[in-house]
Design a protein around this nucleic acid. Structure first.
Lengths: 340, 340
DNA sequence: GTTCCTACCGAAACCGCTTTCGGTTTTGAT
DNA sequence: ATCAAAACCGAAAGCGGTTTCGGTAGGAAC
C-alpha cells in the first residue's frame, strides 16, 4: 500500500531526494549529506534517511548529480579497430579497473577517419566524459588528437607521436626476441623470418627483436634479413615454399603473424617438411581461431591485449585522479608454447 | 580579445546560455528558444542569438538539458559476445541509424552472466538511456531481461523467449537453403552436411534449411541427415575424411561454419579430391580471415551482421519514438560465391 | 546562571537549461 | 485613428540534486 502503481505502464515511481527527506522527517540538505557520508550527521539520523531511501528505492538522478560536480564516471572510447580484436579486451580491462558498475564507457567508432575522430572527441566532451581512450588499428604511431581542455587521454595500441602523451602499446621488439629465442633454444640454427608488410611498425619491430636475438646468438638469419611481404596466408605459403626449396637445411621459421604462420605450416607440410620435427614455426598474436586448430597447434607470441587494455584503462583512471603517467608505455608480451 | 584564456590550464571557457543571452541582448528564455528552433522568435533575434552562441562557441550543457526532458540521446548496449564478432558491426549499424554524432552508445559487457547483465541494466537505466540493445552470443533464444519501466529493449542475435519482445536474429534456415541450393544448382547430387554442435540453434536451423532444399529437390542427404559435431576445423577434417572414404561419389559438402569448412577443404585436398572440381564446399558466416585465404577461396553464406545491427538499431530508434515493432524479426542472409 | 563551544540540522542559493504564462509590441483590419 | 489578434519576449518556476552558511540545542566551563 505504500507504493502506488502509476498507471499501467509499469513506469517506475521515481522517488526523489525530497521524498526521502520527507519520509525520514529531515530536510533535503540533511538527506543529501546523510546519503553521501559527508559532514557530520548524527548516526541515528543517517540511519533513518538510509532506511527511507531504500524503502522508496531511491536512486539519485544521475544528471542532477552531474550538474554540480565535474566528474561523471564516464569515459569515452574511440576505436578504429577494423577486425574487432581490441575493443572488448580493452573494455573488459576498463571495467575491471574500476569498481564494477560505477563506471560506464561510451563507445564510438572513428572508422579510421581523422575528421570523424575529431567529431567524436567533440561529442564525447560534450557529454563530459572524464577521460578518453583512443584505440588504434595498428601499432604505427599517430598524430595526437586535439583534445581541448584538461581531459586526460590515453592512446592504446597505436601510440601518439607526442611522447608527452600517454600511450600503451605492445612490445613488438620483445615479441620478436621471444619468438627467435624460442627457436634458438630449441637448437634451431637455420632460421628465416617471413614477415608482414614493412609499412607496419609491428612488422618492423618484430624484425628488430628477431635480429637482436639472432645477433646475440651470432647466427645469421636465413636469407640474411627479414622477408617482408603481406599479412596473409598466401604470402606465408609462397614464401615458405621458396625457402624450403632453396634451403634444404631450414629448421625454423618465425612468421610475422599467426595468419602467415598458417600459410607457412601448410606449405611446409605440403613440401614434405614435418612441423616441428624438421622445421619449427612460431607466429604472433596468439589468435585463437588460427592457432588452436592449425596442424600442429601453433606456438605463438600473445600480445597480452587484455593486460594492455587493463593497464591503459588503469592509467586513464590514474590520470583522471590527478596522477598522470605520461610517456609511451611498451607492455610486455608472452610466448605461448604449443606443438609447432 | 573576445575570449580570455582562463589560466594556463587550457581549460575551455565554458560559456553558458546566460553568456549568450547577455551578448545577444536578450533574455535567457529567448536565447533558449532561439537555439532550439522552437516557438516563434523573430528571425533577426534568432540570428543575433546564433551569432552570439557561435562567437562564444557555446555548447549547451548536456546534463542541464537532460535534467528536464526525458530523452538523453543515449542508448545502452549490453553484449555477451565472446569472440568479439558482433559488437562493432552492430555499433556501426546503430551509429548509422541515427544522425551522426547525435546519439551515443554506452557499452557494457555482461560476460554471459545473467546476474551481471541484470546489474548492467540497472546501471544503464540509472544513466537514463533511451533504450537498450542486448546482444547475445549465440542465436539460441534466451529468457528476457527484466527491464523495469517503459524502456524499449531490442534483442540482437540471441532473440528473447518472449515473442512480444522485439528481437532481430539472422535467418539461419534461409542460410541453410542458400547453401544447399547453391550446390544443387551447380548440379551436385551427393551432398553431405557437416554441421556444428546440435546444442546451437544456428546449427539446427541451418540443418533445417538444408533439409528443406534437399526435399524440394527430392535428393537425399549423404549420410541421411545432418552430421552434428563440433564447430572446429578438426571436426571438419575428420568428418570430411570419413565421408570421402565412405562415399566415392560425394560431390558437395555444406559445412556448418567457415571454420568447419576450412577443415573440410584441407581434408578433401589431402584425400586427393579437388575442390571444387570433385567436391564443392559451402560454409557459413563469411568470416573474412577464414574465407579469403582458404584454398580455394570459400563460398560462404554471409549472415549480414552489419544489416542486422542496423535493423536492430533502427527498430530501437523507432521504439523510442513510440513506434515499436515487436516480434521476432528473422533477417535475410546472402550467399557470397567464391571458387569453392 | 551566564557564556562559549560544538555538533547537527535546515533555508536558500545554485548548477545550466526548458517551459509556462503573462505582458508588450506589431500587425492588420476597420 | 482605433482596436483586437497575432507575434514576440522575459520573469520566474521548475528539473533534482549539492553546498554554503547561519541557527539551535545541549553540554562544559566559569
Amino acid at each position: 500500500m505504500a507504493e502506488q502503481q502509476r498507471g499501467d505502464t509499469g513506469a517506475l515511481p521515481k522517488s526523489t531526494l525530497a521524498d526521502v527527506a520527507r519520509l525520514a522527517g529531515v530536510s533535503i540538505a540533511t538527506a543529501s549529506k546523510a546519503l553521501n557520508k559527508k559532514t557530520h550527521v548524527r548516526e541515528e539520523t543517517r540511519r533513518r534517511v538510509e532506511e527511507a531511501a531504500s524503502s522508496l528505492d531511491f536512486t539519485p538522478n544521475f544528471f542532477a548529480k552531474a550538474l554540480n560536480s565535474t566528474r561523471t564516471n564516464t569515459i569515452g572510447m574511440i576505436t578504429s579497430d577494423l577486425d574487432n580484436r581490441f575493443v572488448l579486451p580493452i573494455l573488459l580491462g576498463a571495467e575491471d579497473a574500476f569498481g564494477s558498475g560505477s563506471l560506464s564507457v561510451l563507445l564510438a567508432d572513428a572508422r579510421d577517419d581523422v575528421l570523424r575522430e575529431q567529431l567524436l572527441v567533440q561529442t564525447l566532451l560534450t557529454r563530459r566524459v572524464d577521460g578518453l581512450l583512443i584505440v588504434g588499428r595498428t601499432t604505427n604511431s599517430r598524430p595526437p588528437a586535439t583534445v581541448p581542455g584538461d581531459v586526460p587521454v590515453v592512446y592504446v595500441y597505436a601510440p601518439s607521436d607526442d611522447d608527452t602523451d600517454t600511450s600503451f602499446t605492445p612490445d613488438n621488439v620483445m615479441a620478436g626476441r621471444l619468438a627467435a629465442e624460442r627457436l634458438l633454444k630449441a637448437g634451431r640454427t637455420r632460421i628465416a623470418l617471413v614477415n608482414g608488410e614493412a609499412s607496419y611498425a609491428a612488422a618492423r619491430d618484430r624484425a628488430e627483436g628477431v635480429a637482436q636475438a639472432m645477433e646475440e646468438a651470432r647466427i645469421p638469419l636465413v636469407g640474411g634479413k627479414s622477408l617482408f611481404g603481406q599479412w596473409g596466408e598466401g604470402w606465408g605459403r609462397d614464401c615458405a615454399r621458396l625457402l624450403a626449396s632453396a634451403h634444404s637445411d631450414l629448421d625454423g621459421i618465425v612468421a610475422g603473424s599467426d595468419h602467415i604462420a598458417r600459410g607457412v605450416i601448410d606449405a611446409l607440410r605440403e613440401e614434405g617438411r614435418r612441423v616441428p620435427d624438421d622445421v619449427s614455426v612460431v607466429g604472433f598474436d596468439n589468435w585463437d581461431i588460427l592457432v588452436r586448430e592449425s596442424r600442429p597447434p601453433l606456438t605463438s607470441v600473445d600480445m597480452n591485449l587484455d593486460d594492455l587494455g587493463r593497464s591503459a584503462a588503469q592509467a586513464l583512471v590514474d590520470a583522471i585522479d590527478g596522477r598522470p603517467r605520461t610517456g609511451r608505455h611498451v607492455e610486455p608480451v608472452r610466448l605461448v608454447v604449443r606443438e609447432s
